[in-house]
Simulated scan of single mutants.
Amino acid sequence: MATDTQASRTVAEKFVERLGRQDPDGIQELFSEEIDWHVPGSDALPWTGRRTRREEVAPYFTTMWPHFAHGRSKVVTPLATSMAARRSTRSPCMRFGDRSRARSQGG
């Protein structure tokens, strides 16, 4: 039986892998039926706001992704080239931040 830490790590790894493939339905299935998820930001950005149901997860990603510059916004997993690295104590991370450009801002 997996510990809470192992189970959380497995879900996080699946999330990052599916995020990298841009698989919104695969990401969505990792969420509970009921969620409390608030994405802060300007109302001018269509992916900001509160989500309360699993069914809102995939549309969040399909709405957000087109607004990022292809090839400049990416999922980063430290030491991700080997299986040993994936089992290390370092956890995956996502970087969007200043590498993205929102089309709604004229970019």
Rank of each mutant, 00 (worst) to 15 (best):
T10N: 11
F61I: 01
A44D: 14
L45H: 12
E17Y: 10
S8F: 11
P46Y: 07
G41Y: 04
P59E: 06
H67M: 06
D43L: 11
E29R: 07
R90E: 14
F68G: 10
E29Y: 03
P40V: 06
F15Q: 03
T89M: 14
T62R: 02
P40H: 03
P59V: 07
R18I: 08
V11L: 06
T52Q: 00
C93N: 10
D43Y: 13
A12V: 06
G71T: 09
D23P: 06
G41T: 10
R51I: 03
T3P: 08
V11H: 01
T77C: 04
L45V: 00
A58V: 05
D25I: 08
D23V: 05
S32L: 11
P59A: 06
S32C: 06
G49M: 04
I27L: 09
E56D: 02
L79P: 03
P46D: 02
R18L: 15
R50T: 15
K14Q: 15
S91Y: 11
L19Q: 00
L79D: 14
Y60M: 15
V39R: 11
R51G: 02
A80N: 14
R90T: 15
G20S: 09
E56V: 01
L30R: 08
E56A: 03
L19C: 11
P92Q: 07
H38Q: 14
A58D: 06
S88G: 13
T5S: 14
P78M: 09
R51Q: 07
S82N: 00
T63C: 06
C93F: 14
T5G: 08
T77M: 10
S91G: 14
L79S: 12
G41W: 04
P59Q: 02
E33F: 00
W47N: 05
R9H: 07
Q28G: 01
M94I: 15
S82F: 05
M83N: 13
G26W: 01
V11F: 04
R86T: 05
E34F: 02
C93Y: 14
R9E: 01
A12K: 00
G41Q: 00
Q28Y: 09
E55G: 14
M83D: 14
T62L: 04
T52L: 02
D43I: 10
P66D: 03
E33K: 10
W65A: 12
T62Y: 05
A7I: 10
T63Y: 04
F96S: 10
E33L: 00
R53D: 11
R53Y: 01
S8T: 12
E13I: 06
P46H: 08
T81E: 12
G71H: 00
A44G: 01
V76R: 11
V76T: 10
A84N: 14
V57H: 01
L45E: 03
P59K: 08
L79Q: 13
M83H: 12
L30N: 04
A7L: 12
D25N: 15
A69Q: 15
G20L: 09
W37V: 02
V16C: 09
A58Q: 05
G26S: 04
S88I: 04
G49H: 07
A58R: 01
A12L: 15
P78C: 05
V39H: 06
Y60V: 08
R86P: 02
A85V: 07
S42E: 05
T5L: 15
T52D: 04
